[in-house]
Design a binder for these strands. Structure first.
Lengths: 298, 298
DNA sequence: CACATTTGTGTTAACGTCAACACAGCATTG
DNA sequence: CAATGCTGTGTTGACGTTAACACAAATGTG
Protein backbone atom coordinates (compact mmCIF):
# COMPACT_ATOMS: atom_id res chain seq x y z
CA UNK A 1 0.00 0.00 0.00
CA UNK A 2 2.67 2.44 1.07
CA UNK A 3 4.94 1.37 -1.76
CA UNK A 4 2.37 2.23 -4.39
CA UNK A 5 1.26 5.39 -2.65
CA UNK A 6 -2.28 4.16 -2.42
CA UNK A 7 -4.78 6.69 -1.19
CA UNK A 8 -8.33 5.50 -0.49
CA UNK A 9 -10.91 7.41 -2.46
CA UNK A 10 -12.79 9.54 0.05
CA UNK A 11 -16.01 9.70 -1.96
CA UNK A 12 -16.20 5.93 -2.24
CA UNK A 13 -15.62 5.55 1.48
CA UNK A 14 -18.25 8.14 2.18
CA UNK A 15 -20.78 6.43 -0.02
CA UNK A 16 -20.09 3.01 1.41
CA UNK A 17 -20.10 4.05 5.06
CA UNK A 18 -22.54 6.90 4.70
CA UNK A 19 -20.26 9.13 6.72
CA UNK A 20 -18.01 11.93 5.54
CA UNK A 21 -15.87 12.47 8.63
CA UNK A 22 -16.46 16.18 8.11
CA UNK A 23 -18.37 18.50 10.40
CA UNK A 24 -19.61 21.95 9.42
CA UNK A 25 -19.51 25.24 11.27
CA UNK A 26 -21.85 27.98 10.10
CA UNK A 27 -20.80 31.42 11.30
CA UNK A 28 -21.81 34.93 10.33
CA UNK A 29 -18.36 36.36 9.67
CA UNK A 30 -15.06 34.56 9.54
CA UNK A 31 -12.98 37.73 9.72
CA UNK A 32 -14.32 38.60 13.14
CA UNK A 33 -11.83 37.21 15.68
CA UNK A 34 -14.71 36.20 17.94
CA UNK A 35 -15.83 33.68 15.37
CA UNK A 36 -12.44 32.60 14.08
CA UNK A 37 -11.19 31.89 17.59
CA UNK A 38 -14.21 29.78 18.45
CA UNK A 39 -13.98 27.98 15.13
CA UNK A 40 -10.31 27.24 15.60
CA UNK A 41 -10.87 25.76 19.05
CA UNK A 42 -13.77 23.63 17.83
CA UNK A 43 -11.67 22.52 14.90
CA UNK A 44 -8.87 21.22 17.10
CA UNK A 45 -11.27 19.21 19.29
CA UNK A 46 -12.85 17.59 16.26
CA UNK A 47 -9.47 16.89 14.72
CA UNK A 48 -8.74 14.68 17.73
CA UNK A 49 -11.47 12.27 16.68
CA UNK A 50 -10.40 12.38 13.05
CA UNK A 51 -12.95 14.90 11.88
CA UNK A 52 -12.35 17.87 9.64
CA UNK A 53 -14.29 21.07 10.25
CA UNK A 54 -15.69 22.90 7.25
CA UNK A 55 -15.97 26.50 8.40
CA UNK A 56 -18.43 28.56 6.42
CA UNK A 57 -18.91 32.29 6.69
CA UNK A 58 -22.42 33.31 5.67
CA UNK A 59 -21.85 37.07 5.68
CA UNK A 60 -25.26 37.13 7.33
CA UNK A 61 -26.88 36.22 4.04
CA UNK A 62 -29.96 34.00 4.21
CA UNK A 63 -29.11 32.57 0.83
CA UNK A 64 -25.65 31.54 1.88
CA UNK A 65 -26.88 30.08 5.14
CA UNK A 66 -29.43 27.95 3.35
CA UNK A 67 -26.92 26.91 0.69
CA UNK A 68 -24.58 25.66 3.39
CA UNK A 69 -27.31 23.84 5.25
CA UNK A 70 -28.25 22.20 1.96
CA UNK A 71 -24.69 20.95 1.61
CA UNK A 72 -25.04 19.38 5.02
CA UNK A 73 -28.34 17.82 3.98
CA UNK A 74 -26.64 16.22 0.98
CA UNK A 75 -24.50 14.16 3.27
CA UNK A 76 -21.37 16.24 2.95
CA UNK A 77 -21.21 16.63 6.71
CA UNK A 78 -21.95 14.34 9.62
CA UNK A 79 -22.62 17.11 12.11
CA UNK A 80 -23.12 20.82 12.32
CA UNK A 81 -22.22 23.67 14.62
CA UNK A 82 -24.45 26.61 13.96
CA UNK A 83 -24.63 30.28 14.73
CA UNK A 84 -27.29 31.77 12.50
CA UNK A 85 -27.42 35.50 11.87
CA UNK A 86 -31.14 35.90 12.54
CA UNK A 87 -33.09 33.70 14.89
CA UNK A 88 -36.34 34.94 13.40
CA UNK A 89 -35.61 33.63 9.94
CA UNK A 90 -38.12 30.83 9.57
CA UNK A 91 -36.70 29.52 6.29
CA UNK A 92 -33.32 28.99 7.85
CA UNK A 93 -34.87 27.39 10.91
CA UNK A 94 -36.89 25.01 8.78
CA UNK A 95 -33.85 24.09 6.70
CA UNK A 96 -31.97 23.27 9.89
CA UNK A 97 -34.82 21.22 11.26
CA UNK A 98 -34.77 19.03 8.16
CA UNK A 99 -31.11 18.17 8.39
CA UNK A 100 -30.94 14.80 10.07
CA UNK A 101 -27.50 15.09 11.61
CA UNK A 102 -26.38 16.06 15.12
CA UNK A 103 -26.21 19.78 15.73
CA UNK A 104 -24.74 22.11 18.30
CA UNK A 105 -26.01 25.67 18.47
CA UNK A 106 -23.93 28.55 19.68
CA UNK A 107 -25.69 31.27 21.60
CA UNK A 108 -28.92 31.11 19.66
CA UNK A 109 -32.47 30.42 20.75
CA UNK A 110 -33.87 28.11 18.10
CA UNK A 111 -36.48 25.48 18.67
CA UNK A 112 -34.40 22.59 17.43
CA UNK A 113 -33.37 19.19 18.72
CA UNK A 114 -29.77 20.19 19.34
CA UNK A 115 -27.12 20.75 21.97
CA UNK A 116 -26.61 24.38 22.86
CA UNK A 117 -23.78 26.46 24.27
CA UNK A 118 -24.94 29.74 25.73
CA UNK A 119 -22.79 32.64 26.81
CA UNK A 120 -23.85 34.59 29.84
CA UNK A 121 -24.41 38.14 28.66
CA UNK A 122 -27.16 39.55 30.86
CA UNK A 123 -25.44 39.03 34.18
CA UNK A 124 -22.18 40.69 33.10
CA UNK A 125 -24.05 43.54 31.51
CA UNK A 126 -26.14 44.00 34.65
CA UNK A 127 -23.06 44.06 36.84
CA UNK A 128 -21.09 46.56 34.79
CA UNK A 129 -24.14 48.80 34.39
CA UNK A 130 -24.72 48.72 38.16
CA UNK A 131 -21.09 49.49 38.68
CA UNK A 132 -21.33 52.56 36.47
CA UNK A 133 -24.45 53.65 38.32
CA UNK A 134 -22.63 53.32 41.63
CA UNK A 135 -19.88 55.50 40.25
CA UNK A 136 -22.51 58.16 39.72
CA UNK A 137 -23.49 57.68 36.11
CA UNK A 138 -27.14 58.28 35.29
CA UNK A 139 -27.24 58.54 31.52
CA UNK A 140 -25.63 55.40 30.13
CA UNK A 141 -25.80 54.56 26.44
CA UNK A 142 -25.87 51.02 25.10
CA UNK A 143 -24.89 49.99 21.59
CA UNK A 144 -25.12 46.32 20.79
CA UNK A 145 -26.20 43.60 18.41
CA UNK A 146 -29.81 43.29 17.24
CA UNK A 147 -32.31 41.63 19.53
CA UNK A 148 -32.90 39.19 16.69
CA UNK A 149 -30.05 37.21 18.17
CA UNK A 150 -29.68 36.11 21.74
CA UNK A 151 -26.52 38.07 22.63
CA UNK A 152 -28.16 41.36 21.71
CA UNK A 153 -31.35 40.44 23.54
CA UNK A 154 -29.54 39.37 26.66
CA UNK A 155 -27.29 42.40 26.78
CA UNK A 156 -30.24 44.73 26.48
CA UNK A 157 -32.05 42.77 29.18
CA UNK A 158 -29.15 42.98 31.62
CA UNK A 159 -28.77 46.68 31.00
CA UNK A 160 -32.49 47.32 31.50
CA UNK A 161 -32.58 45.30 34.70
CA UNK A 162 -29.70 47.24 36.21
CA UNK A 163 -31.15 50.59 35.18
CA UNK A 164 -34.58 49.60 36.46
CA UNK A 165 -33.20 48.35 39.77
CA UNK A 166 -31.60 51.76 40.27
CA UNK A 167 -34.88 53.49 39.59
CA UNK A 168 -33.61 54.91 36.32
CA UNK A 169 -36.62 54.82 34.04
CA UNK A 170 -36.14 53.18 30.68
CA UNK A 171 -34.96 55.64 28.05
CA UNK A 172 -35.12 53.77 24.78
CA UNK A 173 -33.25 56.56 23.09
CA UNK A 174 -30.14 55.42 24.95
CA UNK A 175 -30.39 51.92 23.50
CA UNK A 176 -29.11 51.29 20.01
CA UNK A 177 -29.31 47.69 18.87
CA UNK A 178 -29.76 47.34 15.14
CA UNK A 179 -26.48 46.13 13.77
CA UNK A 180 -23.15 44.80 14.90
CA UNK A 181 -20.70 46.58 12.64
CA UNK A 182 -17.92 49.07 13.16
CA UNK A 183 -19.75 51.64 11.09
CA UNK A 184 -22.91 51.26 13.15
CA UNK A 185 -20.94 51.60 16.35
CA UNK A 186 -19.38 54.77 15.03
CA UNK A 187 -22.64 56.36 13.91
CA UNK A 188 -24.60 55.46 17.00
CA UNK A 189 -21.83 56.58 19.35
CA UNK A 190 -21.79 59.92 17.54
CA UNK A 191 -25.57 60.19 17.90
CA UNK A 192 -25.57 59.20 21.56
CA UNK A 193 -22.84 61.74 22.30
CA UNK A 194 -24.85 64.46 20.57
CA UNK A 195 -27.79 64.03 22.95
CA UNK A 196 -28.46 66.58 25.69
CA UNK A 197 -27.72 65.94 28.32
CA UNK A 198 -24.88 63.91 26.92
CA UNK A 199 -24.47 60.37 28.27
CA UNK A 200 -21.52 60.05 30.63
CA UNK A 201 -20.91 56.42 29.80
CA UNK A 202 -21.28 54.14 26.78
CA UNK A 203 -21.48 50.37 26.78
CA UNK A 204 -20.22 48.97 23.48
CA UNK A 205 -21.57 45.43 23.39
CA UNK A 206 -19.51 43.68 20.76
CA UNK A 207 -15.98 44.07 19.45
CA UNK A 208 -16.85 45.66 16.13
CA UNK A 209 -19.09 48.17 17.85
CA UNK A 210 -16.28 49.02 20.24
CA UNK A 211 -13.99 49.87 17.34
CA UNK A 212 -16.58 52.26 15.97
CA UNK A 213 -17.20 53.80 19.35
CA UNK A 214 -13.49 54.41 19.89
CA UNK A 215 -13.32 56.12 16.54
CA UNK A 216 -16.30 58.30 17.43
CA UNK A 217 -14.67 59.32 20.69
CA UNK A 218 -11.56 60.23 18.72
CA UNK A 219 -13.58 62.19 16.19
CA UNK A 220 -15.24 64.23 18.92
CA UNK A 221 -11.95 64.71 20.74
CA UNK A 222 -13.35 63.41 23.99
CA UNK A 223 -11.10 62.22 26.76
CA UNK A 224 -11.55 58.81 28.38
CA UNK A 225 -12.46 58.42 31.19
CA UNK A 226 -12.76 62.14 32.06
CA UNK A 227 -15.41 63.04 29.49
CA UNK A 228 -16.79 59.58 28.95
CA UNK A 229 -16.58 56.15 30.51
CA UNK A 230 -16.31 53.41 27.91
CA UNK A 231 -16.90 49.69 28.21
CA UNK A 232 -16.31 47.19 25.42
CA UNK A 233 -16.82 43.48 24.88
CA UNK A 234 -15.19 40.50 23.24
CA UNK A 235 -11.96 42.18 22.26
CA UNK A 236 -8.63 41.01 23.56
CA UNK A 237 -6.28 43.07 21.53
CA UNK A 238 -7.35 46.64 20.98
CA UNK A 239 -8.90 47.19 24.38
CA UNK A 240 -5.56 46.40 25.98
CA UNK A 241 -3.36 48.47 23.69
CA UNK A 242 -5.43 51.64 23.75
CA UNK A 243 -4.45 54.33 26.21
CA UNK A 244 -6.17 54.13 28.63
CA UNK A 245 -6.91 50.42 28.33
CA UNK A 246 -10.62 49.75 27.96
CA UNK A 247 -12.73 47.84 30.49
CA UNK A 248 -14.34 44.92 28.69
CA UNK A 249 -16.80 42.12 29.15
CA UNK A 250 -14.84 39.08 28.18
CA UNK A 251 -15.61 35.46 27.41
CA UNK A 252 -13.26 32.61 26.80
CA UNK A 253 -13.65 31.98 23.10
CA UNK A 254 -11.45 28.90 23.18
CA UNK A 255 -13.58 27.38 25.89
CA UNK A 256 -16.70 28.08 23.86
CA UNK A 257 -15.17 26.48 20.80
CA UNK A 258 -13.90 23.48 22.71
CA UNK A 259 -17.28 22.95 24.33
CA UNK A 260 -19.10 23.12 21.02
CA UNK A 261 -16.59 20.76 19.44
CA UNK A 262 -16.80 18.30 22.34
CA UNK A 263 -20.60 18.27 22.33
CA UNK A 264 -20.68 17.51 18.65
CA UNK A 265 -17.84 14.99 18.93
CA UNK A 266 -19.80 13.05 21.54
CA UNK A 267 -22.69 12.58 19.13
CA UNK A 268 -20.47 11.82 16.16
CA UNK A 269 -18.53 9.16 17.99
CA UNK A 270 -21.34 7.08 19.33
CA UNK A 271 -24.93 7.17 18.14
CA UNK A 272 -25.88 8.51 21.53
CA UNK A 273 -29.53 9.38 21.59
CA UNK A 274 -29.15 11.32 24.80
CA UNK A 275 -31.43 14.32 25.23
CA UNK A 276 -30.05 17.70 24.12
CA UNK A 277 -27.68 19.39 26.50
CA UNK A 278 -27.56 23.06 27.36
CA UNK A 279 -24.38 24.57 28.73
CA UNK A 280 -23.96 28.16 29.85
CA UNK A 281 -20.47 29.61 29.98
CA UNK A 282 -19.71 32.67 32.04
CA UNK A 283 -18.44 36.07 31.03
CA UNK A 284 -15.98 38.07 33.09
CA UNK A 285 -15.48 41.78 33.51
CA UNK A 286 -11.95 42.95 32.96
CA UNK A 287 -11.68 46.21 34.89
CA UNK A 288 -9.32 48.70 33.36
CA UNK A 289 -8.92 52.47 33.24
CA UNK A 290 -11.60 53.54 30.81
CA UNK A 291 -14.26 54.01 33.46
CA UNK A 292 -14.45 56.53 36.28
CA UNK A 293 -16.96 58.68 38.10
CA UNK A 294 -18.59 61.18 35.77
CA UNK A 295 -17.04 64.66 35.76
CA UNK A 296 -20.18 66.38 37.01
CA UNK A 297 -22.61 63.88 38.51
CA UNK A 298 -26.20 64.83 37.92
CA UNK B 1 -38.43 15.98 -6.51
CA UNK B 2 -39.29 19.10 -4.57
CA UNK B 3 -42.40 17.46 -3.17
CA UNK B 4 -40.45 14.62 -1.65
CA UNK B 5 -37.60 16.85 -0.50
CA UNK B 6 -35.13 14.88 -2.53
CA UNK B 7 -31.49 15.75 -1.90
CA UNK B 8 -28.86 14.19 -4.15
CA UNK B 9 -26.26 12.28 -2.20
CA UNK B 10 -23.04 14.26 -2.46
CA UNK B 11 -20.73 11.29 -1.97
CA UNK B 12 -22.40 9.36 -4.79
CA UNK B 13 -22.14 12.35 -7.10
CA UNK B 14 -18.51 12.78 -6.18
CA UNK B 15 -17.74 9.17 -6.87
CA UNK B 16 -19.56 9.15 -10.17
CA UNK B 17 -18.15 12.42 -11.46
CA UNK B 18 -14.81 12.19 -9.69
CA UNK B 19 -15.22 15.78 -8.54
CA UNK B 20 -16.13 17.10 -5.11
CA UNK B 21 -16.91 20.73 -5.92
CA UNK B 22 -14.82 21.64 -2.89
CA UNK B 23 -11.55 23.52 -2.89
CA UNK B 24 -9.16 23.65 0.03
CA UNK B 25 -7.24 26.54 1.56
CA UNK B 26 -4.29 25.72 3.77
CA UNK B 27 -3.28 28.62 6.01
CA UNK B 28 -1.05 28.90 9.05
CA UNK B 29 -3.48 30.61 11.39
CA UNK B 30 -7.15 31.26 10.90
CA UNK B 31 -7.42 33.73 13.75
CA UNK B 32 -5.01 36.14 12.13
CA UNK B 33 -7.13 38.66 10.20
CA UNK B 34 -4.58 38.66 7.39
CA UNK B 35 -5.43 35.07 6.65
CA UNK B 36 -9.13 35.16 7.40
CA UNK B 37 -9.64 38.16 5.12
CA UNK B 38 -7.84 36.52 2.23
CA UNK B 39 -9.70 33.27 2.83
CA UNK B 40 -13.04 35.03 2.89
CA UNK B 41 -12.37 36.80 -0.40
CA UNK B 42 -11.21 33.60 -2.07
CA UNK B 43 -14.25 31.81 -0.72
CA UNK B 44 -16.66 34.28 -2.29
CA UNK B 45 -15.01 34.00 -5.70
CA UNK B 46 -15.17 30.22 -5.61
CA UNK B 47 -18.76 30.31 -4.41
CA UNK B 48 -19.64 32.02 -7.69
CA UNK B 49 -18.69 28.89 -9.65
CA UNK B 50 -20.47 26.64 -7.18
CA UNK B 51 -17.44 25.64 -5.20
CA UNK B 52 -17.15 25.45 -1.43
CA UNK B 53 -13.87 26.38 0.22
CA UNK B 54 -12.58 24.21 3.01
CA UNK B 55 -10.38 26.52 5.07
CA UNK B 56 -7.85 24.72 7.19
CA UNK B 57 -5.64 26.31 9.82
CA UNK B 58 -2.45 24.32 10.33
CA UNK B 59 -1.20 26.22 13.38
CA UNK B 60 2.16 25.93 11.63
CA UNK B 61 2.27 22.22 12.41
CA UNK B 62 3.90 19.97 9.82
CA UNK B 63 1.67 17.14 10.85
CA UNK B 64 -1.49 19.13 10.33
CA UNK B 65 -0.30 20.47 7.00
CA UNK B 66 0.44 16.97 5.75
CA UNK B 67 -2.84 15.63 7.09
CA UNK B 68 -4.73 18.26 5.15
CA UNK B 69 -2.77 17.67 1.97
CA UNK B 70 -3.57 13.98 2.38
CA UNK B 71 -7.27 14.80 2.50
CA UNK B 72 -6.83 16.62 -0.79
CA UNK B 73 -5.00 13.61 -2.22
CA UNK B 74 -7.95 11.40 -1.31
CA UNK B 75 -10.15 13.29 -3.69
CA UNK B 76 -11.92 15.38 -1.11
CA UNK B 77 -10.93 18.53 -2.93
CA UNK B 78 -10.63 19.46 -6.58
CA UNK B 79 -8.15 22.26 -6.03
CA UNK B 80 -5.96 23.79 -3.40
CA UNK B 81 -4.82 27.21 -2.29
CA UNK B 82 -1.73 26.93 -0.18
CA UNK B 83 0.30 29.02 2.17
CA UNK B 84 2.70 26.69 3.95
CA UNK B 85 4.35 27.74 7.19
CA UNK B 86 7.87 26.74 6.18
CA UNK B 87 9.13 26.70 2.62
CA UNK B 88 12.09 24.58 3.64
CA UNK B 89 9.97 21.64 4.81
CA UNK B 90 10.73 19.01 2.23
CA UNK B 91 8.09 16.55 3.47
CA UNK B 92 5.35 19.10 2.97
CA UNK B 93 6.72 20.07 -0.42
CA UNK B 94 6.79 16.46 -1.53
CA UNK B 95 3.26 15.85 -0.28
CA UNK B 96 2.09 18.85 -2.31
CA UNK B 97 3.91 17.70 -5.42
CA UNK B 98 2.08 14.38 -5.29
CA UNK B 99 -1.39 15.88 -5.18
CA UNK B 100 -2.64 15.83 -8.73
CA UNK B 101 -5.05 18.74 -8.55
CA UNK B 102 -4.67 22.40 -9.53
CA UNK B 103 -2.95 24.55 -6.96
CA UNK B 104 -2.47 28.22 -6.26
CA UNK B 105 0.29 29.31 -3.92
CA UNK B 106 0.17 32.45 -1.86
CA UNK B 107 3.40 34.29 -1.30
CA UNK B 108 5.58 31.22 -1.11
CA UNK B 109 8.56 30.12 -3.16
CA UNK B 110 8.02 26.43 -3.77
CA UNK B 111 9.16 24.53 -6.80
CA UNK B 112 5.73 23.29 -7.80
CA UNK B 113 3.62 23.30 -10.92
CA UNK B 114 1.19 25.87 -9.62
CA UNK B 115 -0.14 29.36 -10.04
CA UNK B 116 1.32 31.87 -7.60
CA UNK B 117 0.23 35.17 -6.10
CA UNK B 118 3.09 37.18 -4.69
CA UNK B 119 2.87 40.26 -2.53
CA UNK B 120 5.44 42.96 -3.06
CA UNK B 121 7.26 43.32 0.25
CA UNK B 122 10.80 44.35 -0.62
CA UNK B 123 9.92 47.51 -2.51
CA UNK B 124 7.65 48.87 0.20
CA UNK B 125 10.16 48.00 2.88
CA UNK B 126 12.93 49.69 0.89
CA UNK B 127 10.87 52.82 0.44
CA UNK B 128 9.84 53.22 4.05
CA UNK B 129 13.36 52.47 5.26
CA UNK B 130 14.76 55.07 2.87
CA UNK B 131 12.15 57.51 4.08
CA UNK B 132 13.22 57.01 7.67
CA UNK B 133 16.86 57.47 6.67
CA UNK B 134 15.97 60.72 4.94
CA UNK B 135 14.29 61.88 8.11
CA UNK B 136 17.62 61.42 9.85
CA UNK B 137 17.33 57.94 11.33
CA UNK B 138 20.51 55.89 11.34
CA UNK B 139 19.76 53.05 13.70
CA UNK B 140 16.59 51.36 12.48
CA UNK B 141 15.43 48.05 13.92
CA UNK B 142 13.51 45.44 11.93
CA UNK B 143 11.35 42.73 13.43
CA UNK B 144 9.63 40.42 11.00
CA UNK B 145 8.71 36.89 9.98
CA UNK B 146 11.36 34.19 9.54
CA UNK B 147 13.29 34.09 6.30
CA UNK B 148 11.95 30.55 5.89
CA UNK B 149 8.99 32.16 4.20
CA UNK B 150 9.07 34.64 1.38
CA UNK B 151 7.50 37.63 3.16
CA UNK B 152 10.19 37.56 5.85
CA UNK B 153 12.93 37.12 3.28
CA UNK B 154 11.68 39.91 1.10
CA UNK B 155 11.20 42.36 3.92
CA UNK B 156 14.71 41.77 5.17
CA UNK B 157 16.01 42.19 1.64
CA UNK B 158 14.23 45.51 1.12
CA UNK B 159 15.49 46.79 4.44
CA UNK B 160 19.07 45.74 3.70
CA UNK B 161 19.00 47.31 0.28
CA UNK B 162 17.84 50.65 1.63
CA UNK B 163 20.35 50.62 4.46
CA UNK B 164 23.14 49.61 2.11
CA UNK B 165 22.23 52.28 -0.44
CA UNK B 166 22.56 54.87 2.30
CA UNK B 167 25.96 53.57 3.22
CA UNK B 168 24.72 52.26 6.54
CA UNK B 169 26.69 49.09 7.09
CA UNK B 170 24.70 45.98 7.85
CA UNK B 171 24.15 45.54 11.56
CA UNK B 172 22.59 42.11 11.98
CA UNK B 173 21.87 42.88 15.59
CA UNK B 174 19.16 45.26 14.38
CA UNK B 175 17.38 42.51 12.44
CA UNK B 176 15.13 40.12 14.31
CA UNK B 177 13.38 37.59 12.12
CA UNK B 178 12.66 34.34 13.91
CA UNK B 179 8.95 34.28 14.60
CA UNK B 180 5.78 36.13 13.73
CA UNK B 181 3.97 36.28 17.02
CA UNK B 182 2.87 39.04 19.35
CA UNK B 183 5.10 37.69 22.08
CA UNK B 184 8.14 37.66 19.80
CA UNK B 185 7.41 41.21 18.70
CA UNK B 186 7.22 42.27 22.33
CA UNK B 187 10.45 40.58 23.40
CA UNK B 188 12.48 41.68 20.41
CA UNK B 189 11.23 45.25 20.60
CA UNK B 190 12.28 45.32 24.25
CA UNK B 191 15.69 43.98 23.32
CA UNK B 192 16.16 46.38 20.44
CA UNK B 193 15.19 49.31 22.64
CA UNK B 194 17.72 48.22 25.25
CA UNK B 195 20.61 48.53 22.82
CA UNK B 196 23.04 51.42 23.04
CA UNK B 197 22.76 53.57 21.19
CA UNK B 198 19.07 52.90 21.14
CA UNK B 199 17.42 52.59 17.72
CA UNK B 200 15.37 55.65 16.82
CA UNK B 201 12.96 53.70 14.63
CA UNK B 202 11.48 50.23 14.53
CA UNK B 203 9.90 48.50 11.55
CA UNK B 204 7.38 45.93 12.70
CA UNK B 205 6.88 43.68 9.67
CA UNK B 206 3.67 41.83 10.38
CA UNK B 207 0.51 42.63 12.29
CA UNK B 208 1.14 40.34 15.24
CA UNK B 209 4.64 41.73 15.64
CA UNK B 210 3.23 45.24 15.60
CA UNK B 211 0.94 44.43 18.52
CA UNK B 212 3.90 43.20 20.51
CA UNK B 213 6.01 46.20 19.60
CA UNK B 214 3.26 48.60 20.67
CA UNK B 215 3.06 46.82 24.00
CA UNK B 216 6.83 47.08 24.44
CA UNK B 217 6.73 50.80 23.72
CA UNK B 218 4.00 51.10 26.34
CA UNK B 219 6.00 49.05 28.84
CA UNK B 220 9.02 51.30 28.42
CA UNK B 221 6.91 54.42 28.57
CA UNK B 222 8.30 55.75 25.31
CA UNK B 223 6.52 58.41 23.35
CA UNK B 224 5.75 57.99 19.65
CA UNK B 225 7.07 59.58 17.48
CA UNK B 226 9.24 61.71 19.80
CA UNK B 227 11.26 58.88 21.32
CA UNK B 228 10.70 56.33 18.60
CA UNK B 229 9.34 56.16 15.10
CA UNK B 230 7.21 53.07 14.54
CA UNK B 231 6.05 51.42 11.34
CA UNK B 232 3.70 48.46 11.18
CA UNK B 233 2.31 46.20 8.49
CA UNK B 234 -0.87 44.40 7.51
CA UNK B 235 -3.10 45.86 10.19
CA UNK B 236 -6.14 47.89 9.36
CA UNK B 237 -7.70 48.30 12.74
CA UNK B 238 -5.28 48.93 15.56
CA UNK B 239 -2.85 51.08 13.60
CA UNK B 240 -5.66 53.53 12.90
CA UNK B 241 -7.14 53.65 16.39
CA UNK B 242 -3.91 54.13 18.28
CA UNK B 243 -2.89 57.65 19.20
CA UNK B 244 -0.92 58.62 17.22
CA UNK B 245 -2.07 56.46 14.31
CA UNK B 246 0.70 54.17 13.09
CA UNK B 247 2.21 54.32 9.62
CA UNK B 248 1.81 50.92 7.99
CA UNK B 249 2.73 48.93 4.94
CA UNK B 250 -0.58 47.76 3.65
CA UNK B 251 -1.76 45.25 1.10
CA UNK B 252 -5.25 44.64 -0.19
CA UNK B 253 -6.14 41.33 1.40
CA UNK B 254 -9.40 41.08 -0.49
CA UNK B 255 -7.61 41.55 -3.79
CA UNK B 256 -5.14 38.83 -2.85
CA UNK B 257 -7.95 36.48 -1.93
CA UNK B 258 -9.94 37.26 -5.05
CA UNK B 259 -6.91 36.71 -7.24
CA UNK B 260 -6.11 33.38 -5.64
CA UNK B 261 -9.72 32.32 -5.94
CA UNK B 262 -9.96 33.41 -9.57
CA UNK B 263 -6.74 31.63 -10.55
CA UNK B 264 -7.96 28.41 -9.03
CA UNK B 265 -11.45 28.86 -10.43
CA UNK B 266 -10.04 29.14 -13.95
CA UNK B 267 -8.41 25.75 -13.64
CA UNK B 268 -11.39 24.15 -11.94
CA UNK B 269 -13.82 25.34 -14.58
CA UNK B 270 -12.08 24.16 -17.68
CA UNK B 271 -9.28 21.60 -17.87
CA UNK B 272 -6.99 24.40 -19.00
CA UNK B 273 -3.47 23.12 -19.26
CA UNK B 274 -2.10 26.62 -19.52
CA UNK B 275 1.33 27.16 -18.00
CA UNK B 276 1.46 28.38 -14.40
CA UNK B 277 0.83 32.05 -13.85
CA UNK B 278 2.64 34.35 -11.49
CA UNK B 279 0.98 37.54 -10.30
CA UNK B 280 2.57 40.14 -8.06
CA UNK B 281 0.29 42.49 -6.14
CA UNK B 282 1.58 45.75 -4.78
CA UNK B 283 1.80 47.01 -1.24
CA UNK B 284 1.16 50.61 -0.27
CA UNK B 285 2.55 52.75 2.49
CA UNK B 286 -0.06 54.48 4.60
CA UNK B 287 1.69 57.51 6.07
CA UNK B 288 0.44 58.47 9.46
CA UNK B 289 1.80 60.22 12.55
CA UNK B 290 3.98 57.56 14.13
CA UNK B 291 7.14 58.59 12.28
CA UNK B 292 9.14 61.78 12.59
CA UNK B 293 12.74 62.95 12.58
CA UNK B 294 14.69 61.48 15.47
CA UNK B 295 15.02 63.66 18.55
CA UNK B 296 18.80 63.89 18.39
CA UNK B 297 20.11 62.84 14.98
CA UNK B 298 23.49 61.14 15.19
C1' DC C 1 -8.16 -37.93 17.50
C1' DA C 2 -12.65 -35.84 16.76
C1' DC C 3 -14.90 -31.80 17.43
C1' DA C 4 -15.48 -26.90 18.44
C1' DT C 5 -13.62 -22.46 18.07
C1' DT C 6 -10.73 -19.01 16.30
C1' DT C 7 -8.14 -16.85 12.67
C1' DG C 8 -7.28 -15.83 8.05
C1' DT C 9 -8.37 -15.35 3.11
C1' DG C 10 -11.17 -14.70 -0.79
C1' DT C 11 -15.58 -13.42 -3.01
C1' DT C 12 -19.59 -10.73 -3.49
C1' DA C 13 -23.03 -7.23 -3.33
C1' DA C 14 -24.50 -2.78 -2.41
C1' DC C 15 -24.12 2.27 -1.44
C1' DG C 16 -26.58 6.56 -5.21
C1' DT C 17 -25.48 8.79 -9.16
C1' DC C 18 -24.95 9.75 -14.04
C1' DA C 19 -23.13 8.87 -18.73
C1' DA C 20 -23.94 5.96 -22.29
C1' DC C 21 -26.84 3.43 -24.95
C1' DA C 22 -31.04 1.49 -26.98
C1' DC C 23 -35.23 2.26 -28.67
C1' DA C 24 -39.77 4.32 -29.49
C1' DG C 25 -42.36 8.16 -31.05
C1' DC C 26 -42.67 12.11 -33.69
C1' DA C 27 -41.40 15.66 -36.97
C1' DT C 28 -38.97 16.94 -41.23
C1' DT C 29 -37.62 16.37 -45.91
C1' DG C 30 -37.06 14.86 -50.74
C1' DC D 1 -44.35 7.51 -48.15
C1' DA D 2 -39.84 6.08 -47.02
C1' DA D 3 -35.78 7.70 -45.23
C1' DT D 4 -33.62 10.63 -42.03
C1' DG D 5 -33.08 13.32 -38.02
C1' DC D 6 -34.57 14.83 -33.56
C1' DT D 7 -36.61 14.38 -28.88
C1' DG D 8 -37.89 11.84 -25.03
C1' DT D 9 -37.95 7.79 -22.04
C1' DG D 10 -36.13 3.71 -20.00
C1' DT D 11 -32.30 0.53 -18.87
C1' DT D 12 -27.74 -0.55 -17.62
C1' DG D 13 -23.15 -0.51 -15.78
C1' DA D 14 -19.42 1.47 -13.45
C1' DC D 15 -17.21 4.59 -10.03
C1' DG D 16 -14.06 2.41 -5.10
C1' DT D 17 -15.04 0.99 -0.95
C1' DT D 18 -16.35 -2.13 2.90
C1' DA D 19 -19.52 -5.26 5.41
C1' DA D 20 -21.10 -9.62 5.10
C1' DC D 21 -20.50 -14.13 4.05
C1' DA D 22 -18.38 -18.53 2.78
C1' DC D 23 -14.89 -21.39 3.32
C1' DA D 24 -10.18 -23.03 4.49
C1' DA D 25 -6.61 -23.33 7.74
C1' DA D 26 -4.95 -23.18 12.23
C1' DT D 27 -5.53 -23.58 17.07
C1' DG D 28 -7.61 -25.20 21.29
C1' DT D 29 -10.22 -28.68 24.10
C1' DG D 30 -12.17 -33.00 26.06
Amino acid sequence: MAALGYQPHAAAQNMRTNRSRIAGFLIPDLTNPVFSQVAKAAESVLAEIGYGLFIFSSDRSERREIDFIAMAAQGRMDGLIVSVSDEGNERVRRALSQVKIPMALWDRDLDLEADVVFSEHARAMRRITSHLIELGHRRIGLITAPTAIRPGRERVRGYREAMGAAGLGPDDNLIRCDMQTTEYGYQQALELLALTPRPTAILAGGNEILYGAVRAVRTLGLSIPDDLSLVGADDRLLSDLLDPAVTIIERDMREIGRTLGAMLARRLEGPSEAPPRHVTLTSEILMRDSIAAPASPV
